[in-house]
């Protein structure tokens, strides 16, 4: 490895994202004229530390899934940069500058687990084939060694070794998600994007998978970018949480700070809307009217202003700067002092 030009510190994060943008062009007419953009992700900046779980939360259409996929270049970014630093003292790799071929090398380190355990597994392949595929493609193991490693992985994620020769339809949703996890683990990655990885599961199964993810994180020093809409899962799992609204991060803080002292009105409304499993708690909800506006033509000024219960005149005019509340807590709102 070549020496880095800038002196790396021990706190250098594993992943550093700056100004990430992903626009989807809208084309119309016979000449496919470019008439506008859907700004799915519109300037995201965040870091993911070593063995840290950063969560991206928000409602459907806020761009959280697109952000995760663009970061791994499953979608090509429109603008921005993302660097990956395997060790604190190695050179940072600019992921968006790599060619497709070069990117392939780093895929062993950067993996993803998908939401839907039904559509993300090839129904014609056995569990063993699915989990072993990446090892084979990357030429990391063959023959008996491959089989042993796959069997070991299947057992590690809580399946029986005889799962090897069975097909996806023979497994339940929770078991399929375990196969997806084993597949992501096969290449011994450093970083995994978990895209709604537990959302489709029943509570009792969800708890099993959450525990598994936590154990694996400790055991292997993994970092997670956890993409979810379920705030109770996120609160339990995350070190830090970024709340997204219409393509941008509106608030980012440690899990404890975000839940005890939310500052952005959207975060407050979101937290108050989660139904708590306690009938004695008559919840005071902050009512939000209307729907999330279209990312095709977001409202001028703060995107949240049209639904915000405390919006002022200036909120409709200019997008707010991100303000630091504490060293580990920031929010983008005109009303946060």
């Amino acid at each position: 490895m070549t020496e880095s030009t800038t002196a790396p510190t021990s706190t250098a994060p594993l992943i550093e994202v700056e100004g990430l943008r992903k626009y989807f062009p809208i084309r119309k007419g016979v000449f496919s004229r470019h008439v506008g953009n859907v700004k799915a992700v519109d300037g995201l900046s965040f870091t993911v530390g070593r063995q840290e779980t950063l969560s991206l939360v928000g409602e459907s259409g806020c761009g959280k899934t697109t952000a995760g996929r663009t970061l791994l270049r499953l979608l090509e970014p429109t603008a921005g940069r993302a660097s990956y630093r395997a060790e604190p003292d190695t050179e940072a790799i600019e992921l968006f500058d790599l060619s497709r071929r070069q990117m392939r090398e780093y895929r062993t380190d950067l993996q993803i687990i998908f939401q839907d355990p039904y559509s993300s597994l090839n129904p014609r392949k056995t569990a063993g084939g699915i989990v072993g595929e990446a090892l084979r493609v990357h030429g990391l193991a063959t023959g008996q060694e491959l089989e042993d490693r796959v069997a070991e992985l299947l057992v590690r994620v809580g399946l029986r070794a005889d799962a090897f020769n069975r097909f996806p339809h023979e497994f339940s949703g929770g078991q399929r998600q375990r196969i997806g996890i084993a597949r992501a683990l096969a290449l011994e990655p450093r970083f995994i994007v978990c895209d709604e990885a537990v959302s489709a599961l029943d509570v009792s199964i969800q708890a099993q998978v959450i525990n598994l993810l936590k154990d694996l994180q400790e055991e292997r020093g993994l970092s997670f970018l956890f993409i979810a809409h379920d705030l109770s899962v996120v609160k339990y799992l995350s070190d830090r949480i970024a709340v997204m609204y219409l393509g941008r991060i509106v608030e980012l803080a440690t899990a404890a700070e975000l839940f005890s002292n939310p500052r952005h009105p959207y975060t407050k409304a979101l937290l108050s809307a989660v139904p708590r499993p306690d009938p004695k708690l008559r919840q005071e909800r902050i009512p939000l009217t209307g729907d999330v506006p279209s990312p095709m033509n977001p409202p001028p000024g703060c995107h949240f202003a049209p639904r915000c219960p405390v919006a002022e005149k200036r909120c409709h005019e200019a997008y707010p700067e991100t303000v630091k509340v504490t060293a580990t807590h920031e929010a983008a709102c005109h009303l946060v002092e």
Partner: peptide
């Protein structure tokens, strides 16, 4: 539905 919409519908 999303949580904020869920809250509206339940109400």
């Amino acid at each position: 539905l999303d949580v904020t919409i869920q809250a509206q519908v339940l109400e």
